[in-house]
Design a protein around this nucleic acid. Structure first.
Lengths: 199, 199
DNA sequence: ATTCATAATGAACGCTCGTTAATATATGCA
DNA sequence: TGCATATATTAACGAGCGTTCATTATGAAT
């Protein structure tokens, strides 16, 4: 193999251009020229534009939030729930801040309604794991009488929704200058939420 | 004039197709064939595809949420804040449920990152008026010692965010079968929120 | 050094795109 | 009735699209 990185280069370049111009708006030629090869060379690695799109999606489905966020030292903080929630959110946001993740959510928001082949792409699908983790956390807290007795599912929704809006509003473009505002908003959200549920 | 409705037909058809396939994905020919005319006929009414897009946006900027939602009988409910909030949300959601509004938010989510001509299209811009109305409401409630003393801007964010997520998740596709779930989620949200802020 | 799979190239295909021009038709008014 | 205007049609343009194919360059294994 001459350049074994070409296949991966196609994927990252395609994600970049798809997230900027949409699936229909970014052409195979754009992707190829952006890498520095001819469009026909791409077909040595992927058999169609659609396959590139699917490959991007597979790459993201492979890694779960749990592995990214729920580290052991974080779990230990569960004895101090407010501190735990704050650290959890900080970890989540710093995870969301990565260039690749930002591009992916952009692509998700843009193409959630467009059927591309047989691929499913939905906000619900994207949030489902985060919500179930939160539900689990609040369920435990409730069981140990740390928080009020409210349906954990409702708590998970209430905790997740403002974070998602913050993400949608401030974490989808390229400049990171607003990252302080993001942490500020997220922190205020945790404080409001904690005051609402603590016993 | 033969068919004075053609110009408006182009607009509504374009909104429909743009919201289904995106701006780049819906062609002038699609729009024309969908109306039942040839593509060149469109140029008797709009001078470019971009102008059609701008016209759609102008039509939506023209009407404000205040006029749609804040009726007099609703204002009278302010003496019973929880009832007021519940009715406010119901009115908001039934407003959001209209086919045109659903198509518009879809278009907004799809094209918020794509520069189309000089048009600005952002979630923040879409939410700014709703948020400022909520901020005003909570500011008044706080002044009259109906709710806890919390920064009205934070309250507006906390009140708005879950509603927006509900809208994004359940109110963007064509089937209305999930509308009961929407009202249920919204109602639970108001209850959680009210318990968090009431004195 | 030759072989051979891999990966690059350039040219071409059939198609759709946004847009324009020339032309035809129908309507409203003098 | 006839003329001006608005609105439609048909045809074509240059360009870009996804994709294919024959060909050439590359680099590792024999």
């Amino acid at each position: 193999m001459k350049q074994p990185n070409t296949k991966q280069l196609i994927l990252s370049t395609a994600l970049d251009l798809f997230s900027k111009h949409g699936y229909a708006g970014a052409s195979i030629r754009h992707i190829a020229r952006s890498i520095g090869i001819r469009e026909s060379a791409i077909y040595n690695h992927y058999k169609s534009k659609e396959e590139i799109f699917s490959a991007i999606l597979s790459e993201f489905k492979a890694v779960t939030i749990s592995e990214k966020i729920l580290s052991d030292d974080l779990i230990e903080d569960l004895v101090n729930p407010e501190k735990f929630l704050k650290r959890f959110v900080i970890k989540l946001i710093s995870q969301w801040s990565s260039a690749t993740e930002r591009k992916f959510i952009r692509l998700l928001l843009m193409e959630q309604f467009t059927k591309i082949g047989s691929t499913e792409l939905s906000v619900s699908g994207y949030l489902i794991e985060l919500r179930s983790i939160c539900k689990m956390i609040f369920s435990e807290m409730s069981k140990h009488n740390i928080i009020k007795k409210v349906d954990p599912e409702i708590l998970a929704n209430q905790f997740t929704a403002p974070l998602f809006l913050i993400r949608t509003e401030y974490m989808t473009n390229d400049d990171v200058k607003e990252i302080n505002k993001v942490y500020d908003l997220a922190n205020k959200h945790v404080e409001f939420f904690w005051n609402a549920v603590k016993l």
